[in-house]
């Protein structure tokens, strides 16, 4: 006997979007329900739905109110959200190479000091994690991963940096992230990857999907430089190790 699913909260995000909220906290089960609802909405062929944005704990559904009102869509989404979850099947898994420390990861030493371990141990723990893309957001390709080992969790920086390099791999709170474009960040920078999670002119433009599994692999600076040139020319660099 499977426990009945609790109904999500149907929250208005203005007059043309609904937030379907499963949890207020970061919660693996809630994220599974978000991603399952995302697939169900896509396959339900709801003409009024224009696009969906899965996040850790909620699914944002953009819709055209000329075609369907808030109450009717809210009921439909609740109905879909209460369908039994599909069997958890193996997600596709990417191996993402990371050059840790040095210029590529300027916070590695400080993170090691804060955790009272060596920088090598920080790298070993980060590489040892089993991650999942919980959501992609903020800027193109910025992938938020769940699964950071509990022994690496620390609060964000007091002073966010206004500019961090493209490809930055960082940790913040209970998350780790793969950042694609240069931009501001309040997280601790551990390294860089040559992988472009977003690249115009490449097929696909966006490499990672919410729900994908991720493994990190440490590479040296020379390999990073070679991979960076290959990635610039359109190579994935990330390796699909299960699909």
């Amino acid at each position: 006997m499977v426990a009945a699913l609790s109904p999500p909260r149907i929250l208005p995000s203005g007059d043309a979007a609904i937030t379907v909220e499963f949890s207020r906290t970061i919660d693996e089960e809630a994220n599974r329900r978000v991603l399952a609802l995302d697939k169900l909405v896509a396959s339900a062929g709801l003409a009024a739905v224009t696009e969906t944005v899965p996040t850790y704990r909620s699914l944002l559904v953009h819709y055209d109110p000329l075609q369907l009102g808030f109450d009717a869509l809210g009921e439909k989404l609740t109905e879909l959200a209460l369908q039994p979850l599909p069997e958890a099947k193996a997600a596709r898994r990417w191996r993402i190479p990371v050059a840790y420390g040095g210029e590529n990861g300027i916070d590695l030493e400080d993170v090691a000091k804060a955790l009272n371990i060596t920088p090598d141990e920080v790298v070993a723990r980060h590489v040892g994690g089993d991650y999942k893309v919980a959501m992609i957001g903020f800027t193109p390709g910025w992938s938020y991963l769940s699964g950071l080992p509990g022994s690496m969790q620390m609060s964000r920086r007091q002073n966010p940096r206004l500019l961090t390099p493209p490809g930055t791999i960082s940790i913040g709170g209970i998350q780790t992230g793969v950042q694609c474009l240069a931009g501001p960040s309040g997280w601790h920078l551990l390294g860089r990857t040559a992988v472009r999670t977003y690249q115009l002119g490449r097929d696909p433009i966006f490499l990672l999907e919410p729900g994908d599994a991720i493994t990190f692999a440490a590479v040296d600076e020379k390999t990073f430089a070679e991979q960076d040139r290959a990635a610039e020319a359109g190579a994935f660099v990330a390796e699909l190790i299960a699909s």
């Binding site: 995000s13 203005g14 043309a16 979007a17 937030t19 909220e21 949890s23 207020r24 906290t25 970061i26 944005v53 996040t55 850790y56 704990r57 909620s58 699914l59 944002l60 953009h62 959501m135 957001g137 903020f138 938020y144």
Partner: peptide
């Protein structure tokens, strides 16, 4: 601080 979720124009 809340857990990040989606935004719209006008949020």
């Amino acid at each position: 601080n809340i857990v990040s979720d989606g935004t719209v124009n006008g949020s």
